[in-house]
């Protein structure tokens, strides 16, 4: 067995040092400097300007690509009318509830499968069978069961997001170091105590990785199901505005959803980094 020998003194190599030799070391150093936020994100600004210009200069039909400034104006109107906030809260409630259920049930299931041989023999093949299933196929059946409202979306997100969490929890818990388990037992810990003190924390990094996949899936399934059938929510609003030809407003909602998805991932990563700060 090899054990990583860390001195704790040397700083970890920066993001640039692992890269194969580049051509422009000066430029690269500038980019790898994280404080230089503006330079790093300037390509997005360039894209936004190109969008505005293409639309203003009639390079693209302003119907197909309304100017970004018009989209911004439409966004403010949507906020003022309350449409965006109302539909947004409804969407976030569905995603949050479905995801919370998926994490609780999926995480417990994964740990259970890792510590119990019979549970693994019974549930393992089913998890393996259902994991690769494209979960969007469940949209019609959740509607069939629970109708057009919140229930069907929550069920869909729960079913669609559970297995990545289960697999993460399972792999993490199964990989708990035998010596850690023995140490805890030699210090007098037993049964559930060992589970909670050793198995669950050992599973945490992989479990949280599974949750990140689930988070991305939750947004995909939320928007998909709301686009296909809904009377409320971001997806519904996008479809409704598109059908009425208010393309500026439609673009405004699309960008809002995309941004919330991005933001959720970044916030999640920050939380995880804090929770796992005991690692290297």
């Amino acid at each position: 067995m090899t054990v990583a020998f860390s001195t704790g003194r040397g700083k970890p190599p920066g993001p640039a040092s692992g890269r194969p030799d580049g051509k422009l070391p000066a430029l690269r150093r500038l980019i790898s400097n994280r404080s230089n936020f503006l330079l790093r994100y300037s390509p997005l600004l360039i894209l936004a300007l190109a969008w505005e210009a293409a639309s203003r200069l009639q390079l693209a039909s302003s119907l197909a690509l309304p100017p970004l400034t018009d989209v911004a104006r439409a966004w403010i109107e949507l906020i003022q009318s309350g449409d965006l906030v109302g539909n947004g809260l409804s969407s976030l409630y569905r995603a949050g509830a479905g995801l919370a259920l998926a994490i609780l049930v999926g995480g417990a299931l994964g740990v259970f499968m890792a510590v119990s041989r019979p549970a693994n023999a019974m549930l393992g093949p089913l998890v393996e069978l259902f994991y690769p299933m494209p979960k969007s196929a469940l949209i019609p059946v959740t509607v069939l069961w629970l109708g057009f409202g919140d229930g069907s979306k929550i069920l869909l997100i729960f079913l669609g997001c559970m297995l990545p969490v289960t697999i993460g929890a399972y792999n993490g818990a199964r990989g708990s170091d035998q010596h850690l388990l023995w140490s805890a037992r030699s210090m007098g810990a037993r049964g559930l105590r060992v589970m909670w003190d050793v198995v669950v924390p050992s599973a945490l990094p992989e479990l949280l990785n599974g949750v990140r996949t689930a988070l991305a899936l939750a947004f995909i399934l939320l928007v998909s199901s709301e686009l296909v059938v809904a009377r409320q929510g971001f997806g519904y609003l996008i479809g409704y505005l598109g059908a009425n030809g208010s393309y500026e407003a439609m673009f405004a909602v699309v960008l809002t959803v995309a941004f919330i998805g991005f933001l959720a991932d970044r916030v999640y990563q920050a939380v995880v980094e804090r929770a796992l700060r005991w690692r290297e």
Binding site: D177, H179, L180, S183, S186, M187, G188, D197, P201
Partner: peptide, 26 residues
């Protein structure tokens, strides 16, 4: 196993998510 027999492993088997103090307190 029991707390009458303390074990020390080659790979340390410290709980990586606990600080030194919390490990010793465990």
């Amino acid at each position: 196993p029991g707390p009458d027999r303390g074990i020390v492993f080659q790979n340390f088997a410290l709980f990586p998510w606990k600080t030194v103090r919390k490990n010793v307190l465990y």
